[in-house]
């Protein structure tokens, strides 16, 4: 058995970039910013990931996909470890990821400072329509089809759209 002592992390990251978020398939797990580190110790490859939302059912699927992909590449022992702290934030989403989201029809998260506070009846976040780029949009619902999204509608082109909310 050949023991790989000096693994090329970049290469593994490139492979992991092919694993998509099953609920938002426009994004890879690298785009999402949930892969925290890769370590190789005593024949075992460990991938450290962090969940987006605690209840997100995609996380179990993602762990399995990582194990399957790396086993297919020939790593015999693969471990996926989940860490909770520091807590994931949409700030970790790559610019490339935000671009892909928009192309997919989902408004990418705004920079963090806009929301994430406790103020009641705060004015809606200004979210750009992913279809016509108008900022003349309104929130329909704070919750959406998955934990990470809210529902908006564009007042100009009238299209409803998902907003990947800032978290």
């Amino acid at each position: 058995m050949t023991v790989v002592h000096d693994i090329d992390k970049k290469m593994i990251y490139a492979y992991l970039d092919n694993i998509k978020d099953p609920e938002v398939p426009a994004l890879s797990i690298i785009d999402l910013g949930i892969v925290k580190d890769i370590q190789y110790k005593e024949d075992e490859l460990e991938v450290i990931i962090t969940p987006t939302y605690t209840g997100c059912p995609a996380m179990d699927v993602i762990s399995t996909s990582i194990r399957v992909m790396l086993s297919t590449l020939g790593f015999r022992k693969v471990k996926v470890t989940t860490v909770l702290s520091p807590a994931w934030t949409t700030d970790w989403m790559t610019e490339e990821g935000k671009r892909k989201l928009k192309a997919y029809g989902i408004a990418p998260p705004n920079p963090r400072q806009q929301v994430c506070n406790n103020k009641l009846f705060a004015p809606n976040e200004s979210v750009q329509c992913p279809h016509c780029d108008s900022y003349h949009t309104r929130r329909i619902s704070e919750f959406g089809s998955t934990a990470c999204k809210a529902l908006y509608q564009c007042e100009d082109c009238k299209e409803p759209f998902d907003y990947f909310k800032c978290h």
Binding site: Y53, G55, P57, L84, S141, E142, F143, G144, A147, L151
Partner: peptide, 20 residues
Amino acid sequence: LEQDIAMTNISLDLIGQARN
């Protein structure tokens, strides 16, 4: 519909926290 979705989203968060 929106509030139905809100309730189930909150449930999902809570059950995720419980799992941890």
